[in-house]
């Protein structure tokens, strides 16, 4: 056992987009966590979180028991959860928060779960993968493992929405002056660059992408233009759903708007993975829409 071996085990709540569209995010996260002695256990039989802005918009009374069912799987495993998508974070952490705040709601929700012998007890905790990187592994340990520093790389940080907000549920301090992603980018030696409307939404959430995809892509287009205008080489973020909108969205907007975007999009662990010496294949960056420039791979 080395100093870097944390000897921790988490239940990985996969959700939908990470395992079913961007498995590179799953692979890179598992590989980095393993490097630091964090073991990942799969949550067998987990479903969609379900999407907080989507199912939360259609019927909160269905959204809640589905989320509670997912939480109960981790409770049975006796483990805390980690997620790689702000949507999953949004749903599972919000559901956990509401069920702990309102005992009657917990009772009503458990009546639904009891139909198939499950129970939500409130004994797990929902963690975001980038918080584990920042607070559990820590910047010092990460820094020691950077073998390919990103010294001349300018990075646009994109938070997505449900990582920071609502603050009363998330607990990561100010939603207007965040620092976690900035710290993780800087630890690689890269420069974190301020750009116009940095905290703006990607456009996909709340059923907006489904309601009108092209309209939602206009938000994304503005976001990318702002990052490019500020001289950024790539965008680093903590959300699989944002990844879909920002990455595949570029192919969709090139078709819809006649543009020619190919602006590199990386999940936080994909970016850190490259800096720690993983190949772009190991991080799944060669099986997505946007391509990685030499600058990020050297």
């Amino acid at each position: 056992m080395t100093d870097d071996d944390l000897g921790l085990t988490y239940a990985y709540f996969l959700g939908c987009i990470t395992p079913n569209r961007y498995p590179g995010i799953e692979a890179a996260t598992k590989r980095i966590f393993k490097e630091f002695g964090i073991e990942t256990k799969e949550m067998v039989g987990a479903s969609c979180c379900p999407a907080p802005g989507v199912f939360g918009s259609f019927d909160m009374h269905t959204w809640l028991p589905v989320a509670a069912r997912n939480l109960s799987i981790a409770e049975e495993m006796g483990l805390e959860i980690y997620v790689t998508c702000n949507g999953c974070y949004g749903s599972l952490q919000e559901a956990d928060h509401l069920l702990k705040e309102h005992p009657k709601l917990k009772e009503r929700t458990n009546k639904v779960l009891n139909e198939f012998g499950r129970e939500y007890k409130g004994t797990t905790k929902v963690n975001h993968s980038i918080v584990i990187l920042h607070d559990i592994i820590g910047l010092d340990k990460l820094k020691e493992r950077i073998t390919k520093p990103m010294n001349d790389v300018n990075v646009a940080v994109h938070y997505g929405c449900h990582f920071l907000k609502p603050r009363e549920v998330r607990g990561h301090g100010s939603s207007e002056t965040p620092y976690i992603l900035e710290d993780l980018v800087k630890v690689t030696g890269a420069k974190e660059v301020e750009y116009k409307d940095k905290l703006m939404c990607c456009g996909a959430g709340g059923g907006n992408r489904t309601a009108d995809t092209v309209q939602s892509l206009e938000w994304t287009r503005q976001k990318l233009v702002n990052a490019i205008m500020a001289g950024c080489d790539c965008m680093v973020h903590p959300c699989a759903f944002c990844h879909l909108q920002l990455d595949r969205g570029q192919a969709e907007m090139n078709k819809a708007f006649g543009t020619n975007f190919n602006f590199p999009i990386l999940y936080a662990t994909q970016f850190l993975g490259l800096a720690m010496g993983l190949s772009q294949t190991e991080c799944g960056l060669d099986i997505q829409t946007t391509t990685m420039p030499e600058k990020l791979l050297k």
């Binding site: 609502p166 603050r167 905290l199 939404c201």
Partner: peptide
Amino acid sequence: APELWFCSTCFTCYE
């Protein structure tokens, strides 16, 4: 109103 469905639930106004 179609615009009822154009909120992305970003929580900016909430905060």
